[in-house]
Amino acid sequence: MAFAPGPSGLAEPKVVSLVDRTDAAAPTRAELFELGFSVVLYAVTMLLAAWIAIELARAQLSDIGRAEALAGQMSYAKFSGTVDFARFQVFARDHETW
């Protein structure tokens, strides 16, 4: 990873932010690296992927009426561990006023 000197004189990364399915997003990571970029942000990649999952879940719930029909979905236990839900439960317990 290479950093270019910035206005402060310190080495700073050269950053590019890409939006999926646009002409600007056409270069590969290797091509961007050759152009001097050391950090590539994919601005809406995760949002678009999540939206597809949301649409699938909405259609399944609308058509079938049960979440169990969503083959391959993340389990609640795995989700809870991924977002460290237990930590939020402790925080809520410690700060609830009712």
Rank of each mutant, 00 (worst) to 15 (best):
A59I: 04
I54P: 00
F37I: 03
S38G: 14
M1E: 11
L48T: 09
L32P: 00
F79G: 05
A67K: 06
L18M: 03
T28C: 01
F85V: 09
M74A: 12
M46S: 14
R58P: 03
A43G: 01
D84I: 07
V40C: 05
M74Y: 02
A24V: 12
I52M: 11
K14C: 05
A49V: 15
G6E: 04
P5N: 08
D94I: 02
F37N: 10
G9T: 12
R87L: 11
F3T: 12
H95W: 10
L32N: 09
R58T: 15
V40L: 04
R58Q: 09
A25N: 00
A50D: 09
R87H: 11
A43S: 11
A2K: 15
A50P: 03
L56N: 11
L56M: 10
Q73E: 05
R21N: 13
A86T: 04
D20C: 10
S75Q: 07
A92C: 07
L41Q: 08
D94N: 12
Q60K: 15
L35C: 07
D94H: 00
L61Y: 06
A25I: 07
G65V: 03
L48Q: 15
M46H: 15
P27N: 05
E12I: 01
Q60R: 11
A53M: 01
A24C: 03
R29D: 07
M46E: 11
H95K: 13
E12D: 09
F85H: 10
A69W: 10
W98Q: 08
S8F: 03
Q73M: 02
M74W: 08
G36N: 02
H95D: 08
G6Q: 05
A57K: 00
E55A: 14
Q60S: 03
G65F: 08
T28V: 04
P27C: 07
V83G: 02
A30T: 14
P27D: 06
W51D: 12
F37V: 02
G65H: 08
D23S: 12
R66Y: 03
E55M: 02
A69S: 08
V44P: 00
R66S: 06
G81R: 04
P27V: 08
G72Y: 03
A43N: 12
Q89M: 11
A67R: 09
R58K: 13
D84W: 05
L32G: 04
A43P: 00
